Computed example of a mutant assay.
Amino acid sequence: MFADVMLPLSLTLIMGSLGLTLTPADFRRVLTAPKGVGIGLANLLVISPLLAFSVSELYGLTAVLAVGIVLLGSSPGGTTANMFTHLARGDVALSVSMTAVSSVASVITVPLFLGLAADHFGAEDISDQISMPGIAAKVFLITIVPLSIGMLIRARRTEWTLRNMAKAKRVALTAFVLVVVGAIISEFDEVSGSLDEVAPAVITFNVLAMTVSYLIARGAKLNGKQATAIALELGVHNTTVALAVAASVDDDLTAPAAVYGIFMFVTAGLFARFMARRNAEDPPPAPAPTTAPAA
């Protein structure tokens, strides 16, 4: 019941609400502000899955749990990351753009890294159930379709959308909480049985992803607000996408995403609170120099 009905319905609400917040400008920012978006996406689409591989190896996880963490690490950012970025006084526009582009890219990245992880960790029980075209089609249906519908509604009924934006975000957050709780209840035996093994791994992955991505962004000379947005995008993955894909392959794959969905609020919340103080103290960027008119 949960995997077949509640999970897809909740994910549709979440991705549809994300679409309501997006405009074509959020995708064009890849061209108009390529450095920030490019570094952020490189972290999200490449560094994050590689860290998931490394953490799984570090903790010596069973094959299924290791694949589950890689699936989580290859999932896109979500609206919750945008919310935490706002609370942290980070660059919300950059966060939204990364969420938008990574959601589209997930049609390729999720099945790609899922297949690589199954082969690498020798998850023979699930490797035969992984079909690249099938997973790509599922990710397309659960992400791109509702996201596009949300964007279309915003384009056609902009005033109505803006009036109801806060309500849509509350609905999405409620749906997310219900998804995590539902996943834990429906797979309680699996989650509780592997909690002592999964919890340290997902917490390590979460903290490491935020730390590494923040340092990379700062090393690339991005400002604190941009680095904050990138770090939170890696610290708050779209858990519902990971759960939906995991449930379609093997229920045992859902444990890492379900456990991660609990702890990410704590770690990301602490990081957001710390960065909110630092970003509030940062001076505003200097205005671009203007050329004096010729005498």
Score class of each variant (00 low, 15 high):
L20A: 11
G182V: 07
L208C: 10
M15H: 01
M275R: 11
G78H: 04
I144G: 02
A168K: 03
D282H: 00
A137D: 04
L71I: 04
I216R: 03
I126Q: 05
F271D: 12
A33L: 14
V236G: 00
G68C: 02
L11D: 04
A66M: 05
A268W: 06
G122E: 13
V46M: 11
M210C: 06
N279A: 05
I142F: 01
F84D: 13
A276D: 11
L178H: 06
E281W: 04
V67Q: 03
G134W: 09
V177I: 13
D196E: 15
V177L: 12
L215C: 03
A276E: 11
D125F: 09
T291V: 14
S74M: 02
M15D: 13
H237F: 02
G224P: 01
A217D: 02
A175C: 11
A175N: 07
Y260P: 00
G115D: 06
G16M: 14
Y214R: 09
V46K: 10
V266Y: 00
F27A: 15
V107C: 06
P287G: 00
A201S: 09
T79Q: 09
S95F: 14
T240G: 10
V139M: 04
A168G: 13
D125G: 15
D251Q: 14
L253S: 03
Y214H: 08
V236C: 03
A175I: 06
A63V: 08
A88W: 10
R29W: 02
A292Y: 00
I203P: 03
R170C: 03
E124R: 15
V236Y: 06
A155E: 12
L31W: 14
A209C: 08
A295K: 09
P289F: 15
L208F: 12
L31F: 14
T290I: 12
L116V: 01
V259W: 10
S106N: 08
N43Q: 13
L112H: 06
S213F: 07
V212L: 06
D189H: 08
K167C: 01
I144E: 09
R163F: 04
I203C: 14
V180Y: 01
P289V: 14
I216S: 01
T79D: 02
H120K: 13
I203T: 12
D91Y: 15
I108F: 15
M264C: 07
